[in-house]
Design a protein around this nucleic acid. Sequence first.
DNA 1: GCAATAACTTACCAAAAAGTAGGGAACAAT
DNA 2: ATTGTTCCCTACTTTTTGGTAAGTTATTGC
Lengths: 121, 121
Amino acid sequence: MITLNDKTYTCPVDVTLGFIGGKWKLLILSHLHWQEQSSYTKLRENLPGVSEKMLSQQLKELERDLLVTKNITSRKPYRVHYTLSEEGKSLAPLYEFMSGWGVGYLKKHGVDYIQDQHLYK
Amino acid sequence: MITLNDKTYTCPVDVTLGFIGGKWKLLILSHLHWQEQSSYTKLRENLPGVSEKMLSQQLKELERDLLVTKNITSRKPYRVHYTLSEEGKSLAPLYEFMSGWGVGYLKKHGVDYIQDQHLYK
DNA sequence: GCAATAACTTACCAAAAAGTAGGGAACAAT
DNA sequence: ATTGTTCCCTACTTTTTGGTAAGTTATTGC
């Protein structure tokens, strides 16, 4: 058993899962991986189905866990963009692998997936 | 949008997530990755905190999705063992990477994790 | 015959995660 | 002045997920 921030984990895989678990986190992270940066609105538009509540909640957790950095680019008209931190970038093989595996699965099963593909590599 | 088995996915990463999402699936899979095979009872013992309900439920889904193979080794005394299928093995880089990343995180933050380490690499 | 073990299943309940719908501040554009 | 845009927050409800505890079948071991 591993204890970290008052939670217990069964193994290192579980620890990693603690950071990227949840329905939207990997989607947000991998989006930022391929887009380099994104505003709140762009993220929302490019993650079909995410509610604003979920988006801001998960962004806040990703920020807290230091995987994502929030850059305030302007205060007068309040503007922001999100990027992967170094920690977040260190998960890049994950984004790449999971995308590749998903694409492989779809190909093998003859499923169309080209729509909006540029957004996800 | 990608449609697969009546569900919709936003991108290939999401598709992959569809197979390995959930609290116990990656834990089961990575356990089998390092143990090669395991009986129901051994899995239960080595995944601290998993309830029987969760274990059989997730095993059933992993079987359905063809990531895990259930091998009935004896019928008279009903005995079974679970192994990764080829599909399940094709996710090996994921188990390795996630374990490695978790270990790296723990090291960087000076957390003890050696207990039962042989079970998870 | 009786307890123990393996491999589950099932009904019921609690907790956690996610969705819905609205509000709101600050500025910009018309 | 009104509408639109960006960037959120909050209360409430629903859905999903997970936990508890008990029961089941079959077989071995004493």
